[in-house]
Design a protein around this nucleic acid. Structure first.
Lengths: 327, 327
DNA sequence: CTTCGCGGCGAAAACGTTTACGGCAAGTTC
DNA sequence: GAACTTGCCGTAAACGTTTTCGCCGCGAAG
């Protein structure tokens, strides 16, 4: 059915070995025969069978990516970048969705392990030990999770959150509410860490609320608690929660940013589309995705002596939901 | 390094053939030896090498999906469903992003062809002939594109658009603007087809505007044209354009739905989050993704005699941006 | 007692590559 | 002119499976 290396060999009047050499290490064959082989290959539309090649070389030419939720624009943003960088490097990419479940997460990377040269694991919910365990099955690069000994592409959420507080304090806010996401989430811990540092530095009052579900409904629920706490600024764990907060405040007739300021996190597209547009911090998802596959590729032909962790800068995007407090 | 079928054979004191049989066609070995093999396999943590298996069986156990844009929630919605259905059927999925470019589209499915058993091609920009051509390289299922001879999972956009017009007419609108997306896009043609049918049926006035870029900016641009045309209802090609329209109308002090009604298409998450919430039509993306995989799987072990085209129903979601016209 | 059938299993070929090894001619060095 | 190198290429082994073929032993049938 398909055209194999043998067909090319016959047509070019050489052996299969020569065909293989002409394609993978051109300097090993005489230019004349090489061009004869290349011609035969293109005429027949020959494409090497990667599975067969992988069987002998041990490399598959594939990488995998497992994300917690393909409906989350944050992860599809990194997926898009990962895919783009991968094809650039002539790799194909497997994708898997763990549905936020740590055990399927582990199962998925194990299943991928024999078919890929490595996998980038996005914001895993796994325990540290379990991550080390799956790292034994294949080469691993983490994204948005730091773990000694395994390479990681990170984003400076802590710094972004620090910038949020700086911004709020500069506007004159003294009493701030933070709406926690899931306590166990590394992202929430990082964001909270940056927040705490800035809060301590500026000596502002903090209402540390939650945890809440990192969703629209979580924001609805959290908004009332935040106003009850008498704060003038609400810092949400992420954009979706912030949108919930905005909706709830509007329903209660509380004006934003007049009565209270609100910030999100992630800079999803709709953050800029609602009105007032949401002040938030942009995550360098594309950049992180690219560096994740760069790290993976480097890792694959290195001595594994060091496991670099590269952190990309976040950026505060000031829009319409933050302003100086009243009076 | 990895544990192979030979290791299992040794440990179970049988031949490799028996191990293979015990795992793939259990009825061919005596229960006693089968359990001995299974025990050895799990003790060693053996997982068959799919590449090697594929080499001989001709099946890879993989499917591919190529989408025009991984940043588009519409496509990631179908991707999520495709992935879920695929793992259910014990398939792994390759993903590729064509960046809306027909030639990379074709290139990508060709590149995938030898590594997958089939691919689902989402809303391709390719010409009909070119689609037939790539269909020669591997088994193909289309999503949101109809083409005789190749199986397809479709969504009834035309019906959805018809429902939109019915809704608007029922509210009392007589003069409607349609904001076209890209003329060559199959989706736009379908949506316009449904619109035209309903317009003819109800005998309403139509301002057929555009084409516009199917983006926020396209909506900004289109809004002014629509009001200049003196229409009382604006039907946008999709949600993102509709959001642009809403923003532009708000800037100009034109009230929605007081002065003019607006509808979107796709029901992206933020359609329900902005205010007023957008009246739109929900696309059954998950369902379409699932049936696409089902079609592919069926196609793989059938005689290819018929190429079914399954269309899933859309649903009009009436929210806050539509109301009876003034006076 | 032969023959046949059959369940269970092993030996080996096959899938499409890459690569170690060796051969052969031509050139280089003494 | 013998002995080495060197460049180019073919032969064959190997990768980890599945599957065809055939062998062996055993019970049933003649």
């Amino acid at each position: 059915m398909a055209v194999t290396i043998r067909d090319v060999a016959r047509r070019a009047h050489v052996s299969v070995a020569t065909v293989s050499r002409a394609l993978t290490s051109p300097e090993l064959v005489r230019p004349e025969t090489r061009s004869r082989v290349l011609a035969a290959a293109t005429e027949l539309g020959y494409q090497p069978n990667r599975a067969a090649r992988g069987l002998i070389t041990g490399k598959t030419g594939n990488i995998g990516i497992v994300v917690p939720d393909l409906d989350n624009p944050f992860f599809t943003g990194v997926l898009k970048a990962v895919q783009a960088r991968a094809v650039q490097a002539d790799y194909a990419v497997f994708v898997a969705d763990s549905d936020e479940d740590p055990v399927t997460e582990a199962k998925l990377v194990h299943a991928m392990a024999k078919q890929v040269d490595g996998v980038v694991l996005c914001a895993p919910g796994l325990e540290d030990a379990q991550i080390h365990e799956v790292a034994g099955a294949t080469s691993l690069v983490l994204l948005n999770r730091r773990l000694p000994g395994v390479p990681a592409a990170l984003m400076d959420s802590a710094g972004g959150m620090h910038a949020v507080v700086d911004h709020l304090v500069a506007l004159g806010h003294h009493r701030i509410a933070y709406l926690n996401g899931p306590r166990t989430s590394w992202s929430n811990q990082e964001r909270r860490r940056g927040l705490m540092k800035a809060v301590a530095k500026h000596g502002v009052d903090l209402a540390d609320l939650g945890p809440f579900a990192p969703r629209y409904e979580g924001g609805l629920q959290a908004a009332d608690l935040a106003v009850a706490a008498g704060t003038t600024a609400i810092v949400a764990y992420n954009d979706i929660m912030a949108l919930g907060v905005l909706a709830r405040l509007r329903d209660r007739g509380i004006s934003v940013p007049g009565d209270v300021s609100v910030t999100g996190f992630d800079d999803l597209t709709y953050a800029s589309l609602c009105s007032p547009a949401l002040t938030t911090v942009a995550m360098p998802v594309a950049q992180a995705g690219r560096t994740a596959v760069n790290l993976l590729l480097d890792w694959l032909d290195s001595d594994h002596s060091e496991a670099p962790q590269i952190v990309a800068e976040t950026q505060l995007i000031v829009r319409g939901t933050t302003a100086p407090p009243r009076e």
